[in-house]
Amino acid sequence: SGELYCSLLNPRNVRFESVNMKNVLHWSAPEGTGNGILYKVKYSVYGVGKWIRKPECRNINRTWCDLSSETSDYEEQYYASVKAFLNGMFSDWVETTRFNPLTDTKIDPPMLSVSSTEKSISIILTAPAKWKNSPEEESISLLQVYPGLQYNVSVLNKKTKKRWFFSISNHTLVVPWLEPGTAYCVSAQIHVTTPLLDSDFTKEHCIATLKDK
């Protein structure tokens, strides 16, 4: 006799979302399904034989799972997969595309600190750190991961509305010979040439040069 085959629609849009190599698996619930759906997650290292279950993402009702720890070796590539189930019904395993942490991560803008004197502004830039498992763990700057990392810096003179661009490799920039008592707004982005990765620009940090004594 035909066995009653109960299956659930598949989770959709299963993909890694990665920022500074914090690699989180995301998906959307199967179409047209209400509450009560649970999920389980597994992952595999490309080229290695087995799928590994993620215990912390077993029987969960949320639609994301942090796999940063499992995918922290950026010399490897990965797949992840999600299965949905509800009242004895379950979906297929739905996989991501192959995930390469080195090229598929998004880089945050740099941290900016700006100070000024009467006629100059000094800008210190700090590249974000790679995601790490715990605060005690040693911090690795993305500068170490991407040796070709550079900074594009934009300096806007609020009075003249003129914007200048600088491209620098080291993390400090001093712009001398500015007009006293004038507001300047600075923003910066990270630029990696290979693989081609650009962060967004930071929001503008505005500061005024000191007034002429």
Binding site: N152, R163, W164, F165, V175
Partner: peptide
């Protein structure tokens, strides 16, 4: 050497 063109590039102070 200017590798990326973004409107106005700063060369130096005069």
């Amino acid at each position: 050497v200017v590798k990326e063109v973004r409107s106005v590039v700063h060369l130096d102070t005069m």
